[in-house]
Every structure is written in C-alpha cells, then in structure tokens.
Design a protein around this nucleic acid. Structure first.
Lengths: 339, 339
DNA sequence: ACGGAAATGTAGAATGGTCTACGTAGAACG
DNA sequence: CGTTCTACGTAGACCATTCTACATTTCCGT
C-alpha cells in the first residue's frame, strides 16, 4: 500500500512497467484504461509490475491525448454551510469510480470564478461541477461547450449544453411561509439577496417567487421583500435598522442561514424574544442552526443528495450523453424554537 | 476580457500564436515564461497575438516538461471553521503571482489524504500546502522529497525536507488557562482530542502540554485531561456524562471550537448557566463563537496570517530554497460571555 | 573598422502517456 | 485443409509545451 521510493530520483514511467513485465508500452496503457483487447494473463502480469514498481500514471501526460480522470468542483466560497454536504455527496458517488476531484474556490467573485473554470479546462479535467456559481447563463453555456458540465444551485431550466440539479427553491420558500402561517403568523416579510443584474435564475429569485406565491395563496398580502447589502458591516446595520422599526412585522423568512443567523444575533442583542417578538425561518439548515441556544428554523435542501445526483449526471455526460437533464429535489422545513 | 470562441472547435495552441505573430514556437514559450532573451518588441507582438486569439497555455502540456504554475492545497476536511481564514490568507498572497491553486479534501482519513497528495503529485503541481494533515512525519517526509511542501497546523520542528507554519499551540493553551485563572477559576480540566497513535506532533498534544504547564505554573494542580470519542453521537454522550458528574469542575478548556460548541450546547440543554455553573474556553475563534447567544471564549490562531506565511515559504521553496523553516504565530484569547 | 561579448531568436529533442492502424496467432467453419 | 474471423498485442504517430543547444544579430570599446 505504501508508495515505494522511486529508485533513482527519476520518476517511474509506463516504459519502466512495460520493460519489467516484458510487454509493449501500448499494452500497459490498455491495462490502465481497462481498454478492450487485453487477456487476463497480460492484465495480471502488468498489474504485478505496476504494484512492484509503485507506478502511478502522470495525469499531465494523460491529459495531452486522453482523459485525466479528474473532475473539477467549483465552489462559490468556502464558508457557506450548504457546501460540505454537497461535497460529501459528490465524493461518495465518486469514490467507487476511478475519478478524482479537485476543488476551486470562486470567492463569490465573477472574475475569479471564471478564471478558476478556465484553469480547470486548462488542466484538461474531464468534467466540472459548479456549485452555486454567480456567472450568467451565457458564460456557463460557453464553458459547457468546452467541457462536460453540471451546475448545482443555479436555475437554468432551458440550458441545452449542461445539466442543472437544484433544490426546488420556490417550494422551499412556500413551505417556510406555510410553517409560519401554521403557527399563527400573518405579517411576514422576506429578506432576500441584494439585487444584482442577471439574477433571474439565481436561487434567491426563485425563493422570492415562492414567497410571494405563498403569501397570495394564503391571502395574507402581496409579500414584502427587503434586501440587505452584502458587505460585512452594512448587513448588520440594515438588520438593526429593521429591528428598530416601530411597524416591524412579527415574522421573517430569510433567504439563507448565513444572513438569518446575523438577524437572529441582532434580535438577541436588541433584547427581543424569539419567537414571541420575532419569528425567523432561514434556509440551508446549517449545523449551527441546530444548536439549542440558536434553534433557528430552516429549510433543509438535502445537499448530499444534490451532490450525488450531480455526480451521476456528470459521469453519464462524460460518457457521451448530450441531452440535458434538469432535476429537482424537494426541500423540507425543519422547525425549531425560532417559530 | 471575455474568452473568444475557439474558431473551429479545436483548441488554440502555442503554434497558432507563433504563426499569427510570425515568430517561432520557442519564442512564444519564452514570452509566456518571462524567460531571458526576448526583446520588448517581440514580447508586445506575441502578447497581442495571444490576446487576439484568446490563447491559454495547456497546464497538462506544461506539466510534461516545466512548471504548471499550480499549487495544491490539502485540507483535513471541509467543515473546520479554522480553514476559511487560512485559505483566504493563501489566496491573497497567491493572487499577485501567476500561480493558481487547487484544493483537495482529505476527509480526515489517512488513506484518502495520501491519495490526494499523490494525485497532486501526479498532476505535476509545483508545490503543496497541507493544512492540518493527519499523516505521520515519515509519510510527510517521503512526499516532501518529491515536491516542495509546506505544512500548516502540524508540528514537526525537526523536519528537514519541508517547512512548518504553526500557531504556538502550547502558548495558546497557556493563555486560555490564564484567562480562566484571572477570572477566579481554579478547578479547570481540558477536553482534548481522542488519543491516537503517532500524535506526538499533533496540535492537540501541544495544547495539552501547554495546559499542564500553565496549571503547574499557577500551582492549581497537575491538570486533568479528558478525551471524548470523535464519532458523531458518542462525543455528545461523553459530554453529557461529564456535565452530569457531581464533582464536575467549574471550568473547561476545549481543544477545538467544534467540540467546545457541542459541550456548550449540551450545557445549555442541561439547564446549566454559563459561566456561573460552567466556564468554557475553546480554540479557533470560529465565527459562530462570536454570536451573542453563543458567546464562546476562544483562542484566535490568526489563520489568515498562517496561510500567508505558508504561501511565502512555499514560493521561496519552489524558487529553490532547501533549508527548512519552522515558524510560529502567537495566538490570543478572545474573551466572551462564556468566562 | 574589428573582434569579442551580450542579446535575441530558432530548430528540434524530450516529456509520458493515448490512440490508430495493423500484424499475427488461434479458433471456427465449410 | 484452406479461409475467415476474432482476440490479442505492437509500432509509431501524436498531443502542447519546455528546454537545450546553437545560430544570428547587435552592441561596444579600442
């Protein structure tokens, strides 16, 4: 199992293996790729040499003609609590295959994000999974034409060149409103993502639609949507101002746990009782939400499942599938002490 | 700025650039690498063609002979709150250089961890930063002989083939004890990592040493160290049992916030008042700790700085430095309502 | 104006695999 | 027993770059 020392400081290549097992280089290559036309005897023979010499194929060399057996995963950023589950889901599905994964972090910046994708293409990766990317459909489509691609957490239901796997965000928002309604709340507002161009297919937008829909269906108003700025500090200020309003509604649906937690924190600091003075429902069901002193109600997205489905889609796409898939997972409200 | 469509579905290579600008392939290569022996005129000419054609060098092909300008970052796992800061620190220092980064996740499993490192070597990356790796010194050293390497969050002060960048964990533990002492606590225990072989240089071990040292220096006993099992569920049970003990000490220093938060959660569930019935200090100063309803005191490791220093070390090592560096950053206690 | 050094550019091998085309041996078939 | 087919294996081109020589030009000081 351990990696033997390379004998002479020089790396072991496919040629060494071929020499050791007394076959051609091409034959070894075939064994490595499980390609057609190798007898069991040859395979065993070559495998033995590979183990003996501790040979590992160079991904770089492979990439020049064939596959690299590496898939790239692009994350919006590293601290979103939604991500670990998704990644676990991906890794679990990837483990039995002989594919590896490499991650890139977009840091929620468009330029960095596309820079990372390009870099993954430069690395000749076999396919990409983008998690909650910020880039517009046009850019996604352009990249997708160069490499098999699956997108999680970004709605693009008519995209022809890549697959999308999403939680049903409209549904999730509706469930959140329903949960508040069931507990007697009627004056409900939503805190959503800061407005940005090109966001018609962002998850936040879908959640806004679900929110409005539910409010209307239940006959409790048009559904007022507020937006806090994204910058550190400004968001806190916005929440504080909201909490200080004399006409403050008694219930809030926040588009992400990250922000819901800040709101909850501020409410706590302002001496408000939760849920008596203010009820809150977040989105993501992050681990922190479950702590007893936090008790934030939240919408569970089943990230692990999303990751698994995305991986299956990607692998089949690498195998050659061209027709796009656009799949959804139904979310679920986890009610805690904040409602 | 936008990437132009590749003209014929076939990728643009250095040859196209050479043809377009009317120079040799080697000349273009020189421009790309900022190599010696290119006139300003040539450089401008070639650069223009590169922009015009939207050429991007293939990392895979580069890896076959030269550098890939990619550094690999290996993380223990994805949900440790200590990591985002470190990664930000790395990225900030990497941004001005023309290096890119790719991440791998070890999922706290030794086999997976070394598998990832090997994979990064197979990818011909130029260097590696390992964050809190689990693997023993011997394995680290073996890898370090194959690729420039810097390790964060793993003490190996005598390692000859790689650098280590660490928070001064002994010091951090001592500061934590001191903080509790200053507030009048005398019966202090430590919750540390589950015992594992080969851990003499793990951060937890150093923190244990610091804890014992401080307890002795202050003359308040030998310093009792408890260990909770790592598995989900069992740890909760262990904490609950601890809290139920009739002779339970009034103050606890926990080796990581991840566990401190679980303890705090259980204390809260058990109806204990913090800090009146139980004082807690954690380690990592994770964002959650700062929330007002959590208020966990914790030791700040200055992860961003660690990441930055590691990156500088790695780049100089890639440039050819061989003599090892072993650097430390002094931590700091952030006192909150839990003490 | 001359000769050596420095600056600039080029040709072609090298890198470590994969893939296409093809040769060969044995099996099946008539 | 000859023919065809199939399974197995091989030779050699190929991928996109870097790097090592080397050739050519320019620059200077004398």
């Amino acid at each position: 199992m351990a990696t033997p020392e390379s004998p002479k400081g020089t790396r072991i290549t496919i040629r060494h293996v071929a020499a050791d097992s007394g076959v051609s280089v091409a034959a070894v290559s075939k064994v490595l790729r499980n390609a057609y036309g190798v007898s069991e005897a040859l395979r065993m023979n070559v495998q033995a040499s590979i183990e003996k010499l501790g040979y590992r194929p160079s991904v770089a060399a492979r990439g020049m003609r064939g596959q690299t057996y590496t898939v790239g995963i692009l994350l919006v950023n590293i601290d979103n609590p939604f991500l670990p589950q998704v990644i676990d889901g991906i890794h679990d599905k990837l483990a039995p295959s002989n594919y590896k994964s490499m991650l890139g972090i977009g840091r929620a910046r468009l330029k960095l994000e596309s820079e990372m994708v390009l870099s993954m293409i430069d690395n000749r990766m076999d396919g990409l999974i983008l998690v909650a990317p910020m880039m517009p459909e046009k850019l996604l489509a352009r990249f997708a034409r160069q490499i098999p691609m699956v997108v999680i957490g970004h709605h693009e239901p008519t995209a022809a060149d890549f697959d999308t796997i999403n939680s049903d965000d409209r549904r999730g928002a509706m469930l959140a409103v329903q949960a508040l309604y069931d507990r007697g709340y009627r004056d409900i507002v939503m805190f959503s993502q800061e407005y940005m161009k090109d966001q018609q297919h962002q998850v936040a937008t879908l959640r806004e639609q679900g929110f409005r829909q539910a409010m209307q269906d239940l006959g409790i108003g048009p559904g007022i949507i507020l937006r806090a700025p994204e910058d550190e500090g400004a968001d806190v200020e916005a929440f504080r101002a909201f909490l200080a309003r004399p006409d403050r509604p008694r219930a809030v649906f926040v588009w992400s746990d990250l922000h819901a937690l800040i709101l909850l924190d501020q409410a706590h600091k302002a001496g408000l009782r939760v849920p008596e003075d203010l009820a809150i429902v977040g989105y993501d069901n992050s681990p922190v939400a479950g702590m007893s002193m936090v008790g934030l109600s939240s919408v569970e997205q089943h990230g692990r499942q999303l990751g698994g489905m995305a991986t299956e889609a990607l692998l089949s796409r690498i195998e050659g599938r061209k027709t796009p898939k656009h799949l959804y997972v139904t979310p679920e409200v986890i009610a805690r002490s904040s409602v």
